[in-house]
C-alpha cells in the first residue's frame, strides 16, 4: 500500500475520532461565552485560544468537525445515490431514456454550481439540512456519467447475457450484476467529492449562508477571523489548517484508491 494512501487514512481516521469524541475531549461547551477570556491566544487553558466572545476555539473546532464532516459525507451520499440511479438507467436502457437523462446532465452542468447553491440558499433559510440537500442535488452529474460509461461497456459482456438467459429481471441485472462491477470509479469519485463538499460548505458558512452561529463550522469561525486577522492569528490558522488537512486527507485516499482499482 502506498505511503500516501496510508497517510490519508490516518488523517481522516484521526479527524473522525476527534469529531466523534468531541464532547469528551473538549473542556468547554462550544457555545459557552466567557467575558473574562476574550481573544486569548493559545495557552494551557485554551489549547487553541478563544474567539471574540470568549468561546474556546478547540471545542468549536472539534464540534465544527462533526458538522463539516457529516455535511460532506451526507451530501456526497445523496449525490452518489442520485448519480448511480440516473446513470444506470441511462446506461442500461439506452435509446431515448439515455438521451433524455444525458441532456438533463448537460443542463445541470451548464449551471455554475456554486452560484446555484448560493441562490437557493439565499431564498430558502440556510440550515444544515438544506445545505446537505442542495450540495447533494448539484453534484451528482459526474457520478452519473461514470456509472453510465461503465455500464455501457459491461452490458455486452457474457455474464450479463447469461443473467438474461436464466431469466433475471432488468432490475436484478442492474442491481446485482452491473452496479457492483461498475462502482469502483464511483467510489473514488465520491471520496474526492467529500473533500469538495466540505470546501463548499466552508465557503457557504464563511459567506454567512451556511451553518449559522452559534453552531460552529470551520467556515463560520473564519467570518470572525477576517476582522481580527492582525490580532488573533489563531482564529484564522486553526480552522484553515483543519480545512486544508481534511481536504488533503480525502484527496490522498481518493487518489490512492484510484491507483489500486
Amino acid at each position: 500500500m502506498k505511503i500516501s494512501l496510508i497517510i490519508g487514512i490516518i488523517i481522516i481516521a484521526a479527524l473522525s475520532l476527534l469529531a466523534i469524541l468531541a464532547p469528551v475531549i473538549s473542556r468547554y461547551e462550544p457555545a459557552a461565552i466567557d467575558q473574562n477570556n476574550l481573544l486569548v491566544p493559545p495557552s494551557a487553558k485554551h489549547l487553541m485560544g478563544t474567539d471574540s466572545l470568549g468561546r474556546d476555539l478547540f471545542s468549536r473546532i472539534v464540534f465544527g468537525a462533526r458538522i463539516s464532516l457529516s455535511i460532506g459525507i451526507i451530501a456526497v451520499g445523496i449525490a452518489t445515490l442520485i448519480g448511480i440511479i440516473l446513470g444506470s438507467i441511462a446506461g442500461f436502457y439506452g435509446g431515448w431514456v439515455d438521451s433524455l437523462i444525458m441532456r438533463f446532465v448537460d443542463l445541470m452542468l451548464c449551471f455554475p454550481t456554486f452560484f446555484l447553491i448560493l441562490a437557493v440558499v439565499a431564498i430558502l433559510e440556510p440550515s444544515i439540512f438544506n445545505i446537505m440537500i442542495i450540495i447533494g442535488l448539484t453534484s451528482w452529474m459526474g457520478t452519473a456519467r461514470l456509472i453510465r460509461a461503465e455500464i455501457l461497456s459491461l452490458k455486452e459482456r457474457e455474464f450479463i447475457q447469461a443473467a438474461r438467459a436464466i431469466g433475471a429481471s432488468n432490475f436484478r441485472i442492474i442491481l446485482r450484476h452491473l452496479i457492483p462491477n461498475a462502482i469502483a470509479p464511483v467510489l473514488v469519485s465520491a471520496i474526492l467529492g467529500i473533500a469538495g463538499a466540505v470546501l463548499v460548505e466552508s465557503a457557504l458558512s464563511f459567506l454567512g449562508l451556511g451553518v449559522q452561529p452559534p453552531v460552529p463550522s470551520w467556515g463560520n469561525i473564519l467570518i470572525e477571523a477576517k476582522s481580527t486577522l492582525g490580532i488573533a492569528w489563531w482564529l484564522t490558522l486553526y480552522p484553515g489548517i483543519f480545512i486544508l488537512v481534511t481536504i488533503l486527507g480525502f484527496n490522498l485516499i481518493g487518489e490512492g484508491l484510484r491507483q489500486r482499482i
Partner: peptide, 14 residues
Amino acid sequence: IIFQNPYQSLNPKM
C-alpha cells in the same frame, strides 16, 4: 446457453 469465453461468463464479483 453456454458461452464461448469462460473468463467473461461469470460475474467476477459474485
